[in-house]
Design a protein around this nucleic acid. Structure first.
Length: 232
DNA sequence: CTATGATCATGA
DNA sequence: TCATGATCATAG
């Protein structure tokens, strides 16, 4: 027994669901359980807090539901083409944090179109799993809510596309280093790295290579709040 | 180093 | 109070 197996998913493995119905049935079974109960069933330890285990809740739920993509660049449920996201809720029952979607690609992106973009493929079909995230509740006592499947409406897709195209235009122009999180209605671009000293090669405004901080696409809480409301 | 999973911590 | 910018862990 070690003390570093918080995310060891080898102990108990859940097979990938074969259908959406099977996936949703598993979600219904999880709703109303606490993170501690679920971890116990999977024989996993619950960390004291998430400060040094930020992805723990997401990994726990992926294990419980049988996500099979691992850390590969594919949707969590490869066969079903479904991406799973936890939705951390504050004491008011509203989304507490923005949702990370994917890394902003660093190289030539001028010939990419929204329809073929990785971010759109990820957002095409999402399983949202609400989980209590009020820090006054001990991690193991936080409840898992009822998950639901979401596909962007035509309106939502249009706004996501507009945000993405505006942001990508600036990246193509070599302005990625200057993009801040203030831009975009639903989508924003923020740092995404181990720390601010990490650098990757990007394109400067003069078209040459330059070292910049890696960034990622995030969905604003204002947007996921809407999704939660329309879900009911 | 890049992908996955996110939350932390501070300034406005 | 809350969003932005910074940061943490793990796998391959």
């Amino acid at each position: 027994m070690t003390d570093d197996n918080f995310m060891d998913s080898q102990r108990i493995s859940v097979k990938p669901p074969k259908t959406e119905q099977e996936l949703l049935a598993r979600c219904r079974a999880l709703a109303g359980k606490t993170l501690g109960q679920l971890a116990s069933e999977l024989e996993l330890f619950v960390p004291e807090n998430l400060a040094r285990h930020k992805g723990w809740v997401g990994s726990l739920l992926e294990t419980a539901l049988g996500a099979d993509a691992g850390n590969k660049a594919q949707p969590d449920f490869v066969e079903l083409g479904i991406e799973m996201k936890t939705l951390p809720l504050n004491a008011k029952g509203q989304p507490k944090e923005s949702t990370y979607v994917c890394t902003v690609s660093m190289q030539q992106t001028g010939d990419l179109v929204w329809e073929d973009s990785w971010i759109r493929r990820k957002l095409a079909h999402v399983l949202w799993v609400p989980v209590e995230a009020d820090n006054t509740i001990p991690l193991s006592e936080r409840y898992i809510g009822q998950a639901w499947l979401w596909r962007p409406s035509a309106k939502q897709d249009a706004i996501l596309q507009r945000d993405w195209e505006e942001l990508m235009d600036r990246i193509v122009l070599g302005e990625q280093a200057e993009i801040t999180a203030k831009e975009g209605d639903y989508l924003q671009i923020r740092p995404k790295a181990a720390h601010s000293k990490v650098l990757v090669t990007g394109i400067s405004d003069s078209g040459s290579r330059q070292q910049i901080n890696p960034k990622g696409f995030y969905l604003r809480t204002a947007f996921t709040k809407q999704l939660l409301l329309e879900q009911g």
